[in-house]
Computed example of a mutant assay.
Amino acid sequence: MEFDTTKTAIAFLVLVGVMVSGSFMGMPSSIALPVSVGQIVVFALILALGVKHGEYRATR
């Protein structure tokens, strides 16, 4: 299976949705909102790092 921008974005949104909904189910909303924002930021950074690493590996 080859990943393109669409498949990567869908996988990203599904995983972020699962993470955010899980944090809202177990915590009060005053705590869950900042935690969810932090999760999204960290996950976006991990995704960007993974994409850059994939580009590096593809050229070598």
Rank of each mutant, 00 (worst) to 15 (best):
V42R: 08
M25R: 14
S30H: 10
S29M: 11
G54P: 01
Q39G: 03
G50I: 14
K52Q: 07
Q39L: 14
E2I: 04
L45R: 05
L49M: 08
E55S: 05
V37N: 00
V18Q: 07
I31E: 15
L33I: 12
L47Q: 02
F12Q: 05
Y56S: 11
L13N: 08
D4Y: 06
V20A: 14
D4I: 01
I40Y: 04
I46R: 02
F3K: 00
P34N: 10
A32I: 02
G17L: 03
S29Y: 09
A44R: 01
S29K: 09
V18T: 09
A32M: 01
D4H: 06
A32H: 05
M19R: 00
T59S: 13
L33T: 14
A32T: 00
M19D: 11
L47M: 12
V51S: 00
A48V: 05
L45G: 14
H53N: 08
A58R: 15
M1W: 04
S36W: 01
V14A: 15
V42I: 11
T8E: 04
T6A: 13
V51N: 00
R60N: 15
E2M: 06
L47C: 02
A11T: 12
F24C: 06
S36F: 01
G22R: 06
T8P: 03
T5S: 10
A48K: 03
L49R: 07
F12M: 11
G26C: 02
G26W: 09
V51Y: 00
K7P: 01
L15A: 11
L47I: 06
L15H: 03
A44H: 02
P34A: 06
G38Y: 02
L47A: 13
V16L: 12
G50D: 09
S29F: 08
I10V: 15
S36N: 05
I10R: 08
P34K: 07
V20H: 10
A48Y: 05
V20K: 12
S30I: 04
A44N: 00
V14R: 13
L33W: 10
A44P: 00
E55A: 04
H53D: 05
P34Y: 06
L15P: 00
S23H: 01
S29H: 09
G22A: 08
G17F: 03
M25K: 15
S30N: 09
V14K: 14
A9K: 05
Y56T: 07
G22F: 00
F43T: 09
V20T: 13
L47Y: 07
D4Q: 06
I40T: 12
G54W: 01
I46A: 14
Q39D: 03
T5V: 13
S21N: 15
G17W: 05
V51Q: 02
